[in-house]
């Protein structure tokens, strides 16, 4: 098992944002987390790599006790994260974005890092962008670069926090395709998303969250076709039939 979260509690000040959340992710599994805005999806994801600190429960990631880490930086290297707003380094070119962490952390020589970076850029179809600055790229291009930057570290798990929510509709597909390819290669992935098509097609399991709890989880065909909880039915109804 790659991720084992039990009875997780997280609050910001007096507001309890995650109330007793438990779930597991196996190696090679793709889990999509769906749910209404403010339900705690991002917070849950950010607890997994200690961008947020939990207040209760236990979080095990590769048999590491995340709540009592001694070496947070060494731990984070092993988990890639992709953000809604891309968060590319504005002062670095595309290639510098990709090689900065492995080179600065002494994990690879610059030459090796660039060679690997080129391979990954070719995989996402952006080899020609290696020397431009992020501000010159479209949203879809930025997000594919952000995925490459995370993959360059050879992560064992990839976390995605609404990777397509900030994109124009015509660019969503190019990013989802890269993610699908990654899933097919056996990457362990936790994806917070509003793309129900992607969840249905690619996920092994879908988790529906609302108000800081996991309301329901299951195989995509079960959860989408036969949701058991009224809360899930209502949400899917809203998302699948917006008008």
């Amino acid at each position: 098992m790659m991720i084992d979260v039990r009875n997780l509690m997280k609050s910001f000040g007096n507001t309890l944002v995650l109330k007793d959340v438990s779930f597991q992710v196996n190696a090679g599994e793709v889990v999509c987390i769906i749910g209404p805005s403010g339900s705690g999806k991002s917070t849950l994801l950010r607890c997994l790599n200690r961008l947020e600190e939990a207040q209760g429960g236990s979080i095990q990631v590769f048999d590491t006790d995340v709540r009592h880490l001694k070496e947070v930086n060494a731990f984070r290297r092993r988990i890639g994260m992709v953000f809604q707003m891309f968060n590319l380094f504005a002062n670095c070119t595309v290639m510098e974005n990709i090689v900065l962490a492995p080179v600065e952390l002494g994990l690879m020589t610059r030459a090796a890092a660039e060679a690997k970076g080129m391979e990954l850029l070719e995989m996402v179809g952006l080899a020609d962008k290696r020397d431009v600055y992020p501000s010159t790229l479209s949203g879809g291009q930025k997000q594919r670069i952000a995925i490459v930057r995370a993959l360059e570290m050879n992560p064992e798990i990839m976390l995605f926090d609404e990777p397509t929510s900030a994109l124009d509709p015509e660019m969503v597909g190019e990013v989802l395709k890269v993610m699908q390819k990654l899933a097919q290669k056996g990457m362990t992935m936790v994806v917070v998303t509003h793309e129900m098509g992607f969840a249905r097609e690619v996920a092994d399991r879908v988790i529906f969250m609302a108000d800081g709890v996991i309301v329901e989880e299951g195989k995509p065909q079960d959860l989408f076709s036969h949701p058991q909880q009224e809360r899930t039915q209502k949400f899917l109804n809203c998302v699948l039939n917006p008008i």
């Binding site: 961008l51 930086n73 994260m81 380094f89 962490a101 995370a150 570290m153």
Partner: peptide
């Protein structure tokens, strides 16, 4: 967000 991205890559 860029700071968080850097931290998530394991940079101190």
């Amino acid at each position: 967000g860029q700071v968080e991205a850097a931290r998530s890559l394991g940079l101190g």
